[in-house]
């Protein structure tokens, strides 16, 4: 065995708040995001988690990857459970014990759990919500969600002889969260991990409900080389398809500017879920429609 990959000079694996040995696919953007979030948040955290890849790969009995006190209940309710955790800490005089982080995938956040999420935001609980947006229900085999992008092919909204995939674009979840009048909303990407961690740290200094949505590629569902997880995430941002911004008390206070704008093809061609757009005849028109979405984002969020 090569000296440099030897396991001999092993140091204890202690630093990470999400331990290795979890069963995420190689190159999983969601677990990368979770590790970045939890490491930024530090030790004093109580976490809740929705059903989904994040939970399934990390908490199979008799092991758990989570270092902090952590609870998974159901697909819909990490936010309501977190509300209960917060209420309990208050009632027990333990409110300074920990920051509370509620986590869910895009499916949990934008679809089945949106009611519970809205309730938590409206009630003003002191909880940071993190949406891991890998743009489909990955855990159950890549089905479309409310955050699946326009014309991506998923197993329940596949491209086909008369279909280009999903007929609508991503639900504007950050705006929906912000519309609750909460103090902090941000989008982030595993492609820009320092920014991501900065936002988590900042969010945890703010009292009240916080919402961070993290774009995280899924090599399995997006059909890309696992080595390209970071690249794919970065290109998404550079096209304008995934705007990165902060909204404080409903007002956009920062955006990540696009240094060199890239055409959406650069993003689409990296991934199998968009292959039909580049292969099928008539696809050029569809690509134009996606380019229009990117351009609209650039205008709306002043990305350039």
């Amino acid at each position: 065995m090569n000296e440099t990959t030897s396991t001999k000079k092993k140091e204890p694996i202690e630093e990470s708040q999400v331990a290795p040995g979890h069963r995420a696919c190689a190159g999983c953007g969601e677990l990368l995001a979770a590790r970045l979030v939890m490491n930024a948040a530090g030790k004093n955290v109580i976490a809740t988690c929705a059903t989904g890849c994040l939970e399934v790969v990390s908490s199979a009995y008799p092991q758990s990857a989570w270092k902090m006190p952590w609870i998974h209940s159901l697909f819909e309710n990490p936010t309501a459970v977190a509300s209960g955790v917060e209420a309990a800490l208050k009632a027990l005089g333990r409110e300074n014990e920990a920051n509370i982080i509620a986590q869910g995938g895009d499916g949990s956040t934008a679809d089945i759990g949106i009611g519970c999420l809205s309730g938590m935001l409206e009630r003003g609980h002191n909880v940071l919500y993190v949406c891991y947006d890998n743009e489909a229900y990955m855990n159950t085999g890549v089905q479309r969600s409310g955050l699946t992008p326009f014309e991506a092919s998923t197993t329940t909204a596949p491209s086909g002889k008369i279909s280009w995939g999903k007929t609508t674009d991503k639900k504007p979840m950050p705006e929906i969260a912000a519309a609750h009048g909460i103090p902090y909303v941000a989008t982030a990407s595993v492609g820009y991990y320092a920014d991501l961690q900065k936002k988590v740290k900042k969010a945890l200094t703010i009292k009240g409900p916080k919402y961070i949505q993290i774009h995280c590629p899924c090599p399995l569902g997006w059909i890309h080389d696992p080595a390209l997880t970071i690249k794919v995430a970065q290109v998404a941002v550079q096209t304008g398809l995934i705007p990165i911004f902060e909204m404080e008390n409903g007002v956009i206070t920062s955006v990540r500017k696009i240094v060199k704008k890239r055409p959406v093809e650069d993003y689409l061609k990296l991934q199998g879920r968009f292959r039909h757009l580049l292969k099928k005849s008539g696809g050029e028109d569809e690509v134009k429609r996606i380019q229009a979405i990117a351009d609209q984002n650039i205008e709306k969020y002043h990305l350039i």
Binding site: T4, A19, G21, H22, Q63, S64, W66, P69
Partner: peptide
């Protein structure tokens, strides 16, 4: 279950390529 106990589950055998530093 115990926190961080996934360390007991070795995923190294999944690998088909390895990084050389």
């Amino acid at each position: 279950v115990k926190p961080g106990s996934s360390k007991e589950y070795k995923t190294g055998s999944w690998r088909s390529k390895k990084p050389i530093f």
